[in-house]
């Protein structure tokens, strides 16, 4: 595991330094159990761990297919702000408070 991490954080010719740093940061977060969707800093597939927030928000998310256990694709990362996800074939934009109430883990 440690070897992989060292390999991932290496500076390759095709990678920019900043890109490498971001991957490292994401990797650390991914290692944690779950993070708010708004804090996810890498594009890619995630699994919904839980949907927090008020009942109405949870219900709306459920109608859109954002349910615990479902997979989603992060198209436009939040970095603490609004984000765009692909779920059930549809593209959904979520504002910062809503995105922060969805806990995800990388697939």
């Amino acid at each position: 595991m440690a070897t992989n991490e060292t390999k991932d954080s290496c500076f390759f010719l095709t990678d920019f330094f900043s890109k490498c740093r971001r991957r490292k940061r994401c990797g650390r977060r991914a290692a944690q159990s779950s993070t708010p969707l708004s804090q996810s800093c890498c594009h890619g597939r995630f699994r919904v761990c839980s949907v927090n927030g008020d009942r109405r928000t949870c219900a709306r998310m459920a109608n859109l297919g954002l349910l615990p256990g479902r997979e989603l694709e992060l198209l436009c990362k939040g970095n603490g702000q609004q984000c765009m996800v692909k779920v059930n074939g549809g593209t959904i934009s979520l504002d910062a408070p809503t995105a922060s109430s969805i806990m995800v883990a990388p697939v």
Binding site: C58, A59, A62, G65, P68, G69, N88
Partner: peptide, 13 residues
């Protein structure tokens, strides 16, 4: 950790 509407939606899906 879910509300009934999430459970219902999950079963519909």
């Amino acid at each position: 950790g879910i509300y009934p509407e999430a459970m219902i939606a999950d079963h519909r899906y």
